[in-house]
Design a protein around this nucleic acid. Structure first.
Lengths: 228, 228
DNA sequence: AGGCTGTCTTGATATTTATCAATCAAATGT
DNA sequence: ACATTTGATTGATAAATATCAAGACAGCCT
């Protein structure tokens, strides 16, 4: 079967409920591409010809303006990106680069729009994914506008702690300078912020994060269901 | 016909292409509600039972955390809100209050989801609206992360200028303290920022904005297709 | 191992932004 | 029209954050 290479994504929420026929139509003309690390795959301002899915590796979404750059998100296995631009056939608002050697599945935007119109289950899945990403972005904006950089860092540490199985000690999944950019601060400021969190129960050494006083950290970070 | 009161929204992009039958189903159980100014209609954390549409008046979306508040958007006639939470039957991430006396159309979330599943044209319109709002939020975030508050203000003034028919002189559509909150700054800082823009061709007096040197302002603001 | 490169950290300083307090101006109610 | 309230401005100061420069450290190459 020609779609065998796309079996890895068949089970994702976005594709799980659609018919075989729809999946075939969708993946006709789709392909897998290998990228080396640190390669810009998409530049903001280009037309979104393909829906992208990270099959393996790791991708950073970022944006630039007037010589400045900011990291918007880091995506891992099974994440989709540029769905909104794909659906509306618009320009990408963000750029994307690989952080590691990565395999990316690319599905022609036309196919996505075509199957959307014919398969109600796929349509529903698209809306779920869109809503999820939209809401994530709103949370992100609240985080930026309502919290200081120190508070953002504290909550980031808590969220990673939770993602990594509630371990009190874990490794940062990204470089610090990217984390700084993601949190809306400079690397220097991030470095100092880590130190300022020591009294709130966080000890950092290299990529290693150790939460020495979870209660104190939670108390300072005040994580919130509607932001984090 | 029982849906006569909803004729005002029938022509909106979100509802224009759907069948009569779908529109009837959608508006069954829907109603119009009048709110006085400064009334909180929705509090973040509540379940999104209704899709809201501003029929007349003006609504502010805002969020709070730990004694702080930030303005996320100001909506006028024909705007919909909480669409994402409605589609996924989730908690609202934002609160909403009227800024003026307003008429709001409220459509039960269940109806929206029901018709979404049966009317492909409505499904398409929903995705369009979701994508539009999502992309607007990404632009907003880029604006916040890539620009200083002075640059954000300069671009805001340019955008309003454009919205108000390219007039060089116009009235601010919102109170300054709300504008400050929307732009992610304090009222004091906004006040000073207006003064700092004088050398860049902006004169402010009360609600009145006068662009005395459009070239200079554009030169400073560097408006961008992918942000503004 | 040695050298190279890029990231991270630290210190000194400048800029941006917030806070607090006081005054001023404008809108509102009676 | 007056008093009252709310929002806007201004000044003085503090806090947060960025910038610049230097040094420390780690990973990588040959």
């Amino acid at each position: 079967m020609t779609t065998a290479r796309f079996e890895s994504i068949r089970g994702l929420p976005l594709f799980a409920e659609m018919t075989e026929e729809s999946f075939d139509t969708l993946t006709r003309g789709a392909f897998v591409q290998n990228f080396p690390p640190n390669m810009v795959m998409i530049s903001e301002g280009e037309v979104a010809d393909f829906l992208h899915i990270v099959q393996s590796g790791c991708v950073e979404l970022f944006s630039t303006w007037s010589n400045r750059e900011t990291s918007v998100a880091t995506l891992y296995e099974n994440s989709t990106f540029i769905l909104a631009a794909t659906m509306k056939n618009r320009l990408n608002l963000m750029s994307a680069r690989t952080l590691q050697k990565s395999r990316i599945i690319m599905i022609p935007s036309e196919n996505v729009r075509e199957v959307f119109a014919t398969d109600p289950n796929f349509a529903l899945a698209i809306v779920d994914e869109l809503s999820r990403c939209y809401r994530a972005t709103i949370r992100n904006m609240k985080n930026l506008k309502l919290r200081t950089s120190l508070e953002r860092l504290a909550n980031y540490i808590l969220k990673q702690h939770h993602r990594q199985g509630d371990l009190l000690e874990y490794q940062l999944p990204v470089e610090k300078r990217r984390l700084a950019s993601y949190l809306g601060m400079t690397p220097e400021n991030l470095s100092r912020a880590f130190n300022k969190l020591k009294p709130h129960g966080v000890v950092v050494s290299g990529q290693n994060i150790c939460i020495t006083d979870l209660t104190a950290l939670v108390d300072f970070a005040k994580p919130d269901l509607l932001i984090d």
